[in-house]
């Protein structure tokens, strides 16, 4: 693969107060690739995404997006530059209707009508519920709504954090089908997941974090082989 990676994280450190959570993370997402970032709780995955998306400041280290040094950029600037972040938990506004949520997605630079059109085409169920408050949707539907932002904002890089959290496996499969379709359009994706296998299915590369560092990288099948040990303990 040629050229500059869409995302390059170099020796990144970050801390909450004096407590260091990221201890020198190196990570690379090639253009057009899907990278799965796995690892147990507390490994620092979500913090890493927060720093990349500009929601938190690093203490040292660099982030390059498509070769451009973006350290210190604000989340709203990054959003308008083509970074779409879907944070952990339900990343929708629960007290707004589905349609109002979609309306706000037009801040990424696409017209509201276009947003509606794309979102409803992908998820007809959202159209049925367009006047319903997002908070009253089922977990799966809320994540569809969240994913609609990834679909409609036409991102250069998509960051997905724990899409599967609290959802039944069947729904997770369905959501990841959509992620796979987004990937097929050439969007580069960094996906953080606990459901290792589901994420690995659509990934081109995988990385494992523990203790604030990336401790293993490789092909999905290599990583899959060691995941159970890392997550459930290797004592067996």
């Amino acid at each position: 693969m040629s050229g500059v990676p869409i995302l390059e994280v170099i020796d990144l450190h970050a801390a909450y107060g004096r407590i260091e959570v990221l201890r020198g993370v190196n990570l690379r997402v090639p253009k057009g690739a899907v990278v799965a970032l796995l690892g147990p709780n507390g490994a620092g995955k979500s913090t890493l995404l927060k720093v990349i998306s500009g929601q938190m400041e690093q203490t040292s280290g660099d982030i390059h997006m498509a070769g451009v040094h973006v350290t210190g950029a604000k989340p709203d600037d990054l959003a308008q530059l083509g970074l779409t972040t879907i944070p952990e938990g339900r990343s929708v506004f629960p007290n707004l209707t589905v349609e109002e949520n979609l309306l706000l997605m037009s801040y990424a630079g696409v017209s509201a009508d276009q947003v509606f059109e794309t979102a409803y085409a992908y998820f007809p169920r959202l159209h049925e519920r367009r006047y319903q408050l997002a908070g009253t949707l089922s977990g799966g539907e809320q994540q569809m709504l969240a994913l609609a932002r990834a679909l409609t904002s036409d991102p250069a890089l998509l960051l997905l954090d724990e899409l599967s959290m609290g959802l039944a496996p069947l729904i997770v499969e369905e959501l990841y089908d959509t992620v796979g379709r987004i990937a097929a359009t050439g969007v580069s994706i960094l996906v953080v997941e606990q459901f290792a296998q589901t994420a690995l299915k659509i990934a081109d590369h995988a990385a494992v974090m523990t203790g604030g560092r990336v401790v293993a990288t490789g092909e999905p099948n290599e990583i899959e082989a060691i995941m159970a040990d890392i997550v459930l303990g290797g004592a067996a």
């Binding site: 308008q80 779409t84 972040t85 506004f93 707004l96 706000l104 037009s106 801040y107 509201a112």
Partner: peptide, 26 residues
Amino acid sequence: LTRTRIGTAMRASVDNPDLLRLYGGR
């Protein structure tokens, strides 16, 4: 608050200003 984008964004920022920022709103 219900018919304009900026007004919708006002209600959104009640819930979660950080998320609004990720959406690209200010």
